[in-house]
Amino acid sequence: MSFLKEILNRPFFIKLFNWEYWSFHTVYTPIYIYWVWLCIRARSFFFFNTANPAIKNGGFLMESKKEIYDIIPPQYYPKTVLVKAGSAFSVVQQTMQQHAFIFPLIGKPDIGMRGLSVKKLDTERDVQAYLQTSKVDFLLQEFVPFENEVGIFYYRYPGESEGHISGIVGKEFLTVTGNGIATIEELLQLDKRYILQLPVLQKTYGKTLKQILPLNENFVLVPYGNHARGAKFIDLTPLADQQLSGIIDAVCKNIPGFYYGRMDVRYNTWEELKRGENFSIIELNGAGSEPTHMYDPQHSILFAWKEIIRHWRILWKISRLNHKRKKIPYMNFSSGIQMFRENSAYVKLISPE
């Protein structure tokens, strides 16, 4: 029995029997035919660029996070600056002083995806190391201290006065709780989700993983809610009541040219979030957003396909309305192909070696 358990706890079998760990193309390939059908109806393979007119490519690929922050009212997101690749560290230090940055900070590529190269920076030495290793422009952002994080999927049809919440995902960060006996690494090996993260965590934390945590002491190894970095996603969509929908709708209508996407929000308490208090938007994603509440382990792959198709149809309808009402042209074929090529090259720059 223990031998079987050992086999099933190997990364290959963990991924095989839990669809949430399947590759992007494995999940999406069976339903690509529906996407093709939408393209045919729109008479464009790249209709999605009109979904969010204020965001490059509608926020599907290769959009700048800094440019997105610039259209969000500043009270809604943490202090953020853009650092050009290859900048002198003295210039970065001066920028941090001018903006009165307080550690810890978050470093992340200006054009990012799936949590690649996102890192918590606790000291100036960490910032210097991040600067030296980054091959692309990146953001320095103050770490939001609120303990909770959700992803809220929002859409509003052009011409309608009210928007809607189509999904909410709660995020449990990659955290272990000490028992006074086991090392951090041994505790990680008790959770299949964490086993998949071990190679990265061993590289990041080194000998720290050999420490024994005191009884009931929590240790957060990845302090942000990214599924690819070990966070557990919980479907909280039933919590999308009228009060929360009203708050989120008011925020999103203050973001010019934003009609469709997911915002990742740090917040203090749920009741405060519903009142529009003590929260911060740490990410705003556009047409390329996934309905990440589908990754709740309780959901099946059939549920995921249903949610993806539902959101694709909403994206298509919004894109079509903006195309017709605002006369925004669809991206042409050559530009679309070039976008995908640039994205492939960029992924290689921010992927760990």
Results as ranks from 00 to 15, higher is better:
residue 233 F to H: 12
residue 234 I to Q: 05
residue 236 L to F: 11
residue 237 T to G: 12
residue 237 T to H: 01
residue 239 L to T: 12
residue 239 L to N: 09
residue 242 Q to Y: 00
residue 243 Q to T: 14
residue 243 Q to K: 13
residue 243 Q to Y: 00
residue 244 L to T: 03
residue 244 L to H: 08
residue 245 S to Y: 00
residue 245 S to H: 02
residue 247 I to T: 14
residue 248 I to R: 07
residue 250 A to N: 11
residue 252 C to H: 06
residue 253 K to N: 14
residue 253 K to R: 14
residue 254 N to F: 03
residue 254 N to H: 10
residue 255 I to P: 00
residue 255 I to W: 01
residue 255 I to G: 03
residue 256 P to T: 15
residue 256 P to A: 12
residue 258 F to A: 09
residue 259 Y to R: 02
residue 259 Y to Q: 07
residue 259 Y to A: 10
residue 260 Y to N: 14
residue 260 Y to R: 02
residue 261 G to M: 02
residue 261 G to D: 03
residue 262 R to T: 03
residue 263 M to E: 09
residue 264 D to H: 06
residue 265 V to H: 02
residue 268 N to F: 09
residue 269 T to D: 03
residue 271 E to D: 13
residue 271 E to I: 09
residue 272 E to R: 11
residue 272 E to N: 14
residue 272 E to Y: 08
residue 277 E to W: 07
residue 278 N to E: 10
residue 278 N to D: 12
residue 281 I to T: 01
residue 281 I to N: 04
residue 281 I to G: 05
residue 282 I to F: 08
residue 282 I to A: 07
residue 282 I to Y: 01
residue 283 E to Y: 06
residue 285 N to F: 05
residue 286 G to D: 07
residue 288 G to I: 13
residue 289 S to F: 04
residue 290 E to Q: 06
residue 291 P to D: 10
residue 291 P to T: 06
residue 291 P to R: 00
residue 292 T to Q: 08
residue 293 H to W: 02
residue 294 M to P: 08
residue 294 M to G: 11
residue 295 Y to M: 13
residue 297 P to R: 00
residue 299 H to G: 09
residue 299 H to N: 13
residue 299 H to L: 10
residue 300 S to G: 04
residue 300 S to L: 08
residue 300 S to R: 03
residue 301 I to H: 03
residue 302 L to C: 11
residue 302 L to S: 13
residue 303 F to M: 05
residue 303 F to A: 10
residue 304 A to V: 05
residue 304 A to L: 08
residue 304 A to S: 12
residue 306 K to S: 14
